[in-house]
């Protein structure tokens, strides 16, 4: 029974981990993309549509990632190419993604697909409790792999140093000869891919159907998780599992008849976020880890 609950917690965390890790890289490069929700929805509709057409959820994964990347490219064009306001463009991207995914998805409503199967590791999955970690689907394992590689690239490679330099001090990076806009654009595309994968996870694993607006605000939670994780990839995993855990716990509490108001329990995950944010704000800026030029427009001087 606890195995089932733990499994539910892990599965519900995966889309948050994927989207937040992508956004983390985007923000590390100094760009704030508030369009995560819109990119997730594009990923979800593409993931579902491609799976429905090709009968292969693996193609669906690719489709979701591609759709997310294309949507992000549009954002990159406006924000980096035309130097538009990042907050306004990001919000517009969410509205755009919500509308366009609904339009594309209209003929898909009411269909069902076979999602990604669970990939059960023999022997290891028989271990009590811990075994749950080895009975997930491919995309869940991939998401952990992506967090690990993101963390490695950001903090252990030259590329990561460049990305962080661009986010912390674009002028210096530019003076050193790095193309700030190019680095930021690739980061934005990576973020879109991850958001697309995250969106595709919903119809491919959690609820194998398409419905308009099915992400129901998870993109915004992913954005909050990046701050919650103080821009550190592994903390994203911790935050996502904590968030998922509190969500599932409040549902389980109701099922068991705990006499606590469900509104209060629903509030818990957000309360936890606020508490961590307050705790972090007591530290200095370095400790919070916010990229110094997050959200600022950079126009390369001629």
């Amino acid at each position: 029974m606890y195995d089932d609950l733990l499994l539910t917690v892990l599965l519900t965390s995966v889309p948050l981990i994927l989207a937040a890790t992508g956004e983390l890289v985007v923000e590390r490069s100094g760009v704030l993309n508030l369009g995560v929700e819109g990119m997730m929805l594009m990923g979800a509709v593409a993931g579902f549509g491609v799976t429905s057409l090709s009968a292969s959820p693996y193609f669906g994964m690719l489709g979701g990632a591609t759709a997310g990347a294309v949507t992000a490219a549009l954002f990159g064009f406006f924000v980096l190419g035309l130097a538009t306001n990042q907050v306004a463009t990001g919000l517009a991207l969410t509205i755009f993604g919500t509308g366009l995914s609904g339009l594309i998805g209209a003929p898909l409503v009411g269909q069902a697909i076979d999602g990604l199967p669970a990939f059960i590791v023999p022997v290891l999955s028989d271990i009590p409790v811990v075994g749950v970690l080895f009975s997930l689907d491919v995309l869940a394992y991939v998401s952990i792999g992506l967090v690990a590689s993101t963390s490695f690239v950001l903090f252990r490679t030259r590329l990561g140093l460049v990305i962080r330099a661009v986010g912390d001090n674009a002028t210096s990076a530019h003076a050193l000869g790095y193309s700030v806009l190019k680095v930021r654009f690739y980061a934005v595309i990576f973020g879109g891919m991850m958001a697309g994968l995250s969106g595709a996870y919903l119809p491919l694993v959690l609820t194998p159907h398409w419905a308009e607006g099915m992400t129901a605000g998870r993109g915004w939670i992913a954005l909050a998780l990046v701050v919650f994780a103080s821009w550190q990839p592994w903390r994203v995993v911790g935050g996502a599992v904590l968030f998922g855990g509190v969500t599932i716990m409040q549902l389980a509490g109701q099922a068991r008849g705990w006499s606590v108001s469900p509104q209060f329990l629903s509030m818990l995950p957000y309360l936890a976020t606020i508490i961590v944010l307050v705790a972090m704000s007591r530290g200095g800026r370095a400790e919070r880890g916010a990229p110094a030029q997050l959200g600022r427009i950079f126009l390369p001087p001629r």
Partner: peptide, 19 residues
Amino acid sequence: NSWYDPVKESDAAKVLIAE
């Protein structure tokens, strides 16, 4: 606490089945 949130509805169903 929502009319429409597929993931949360699915989570709640899983929890009830586990119980």
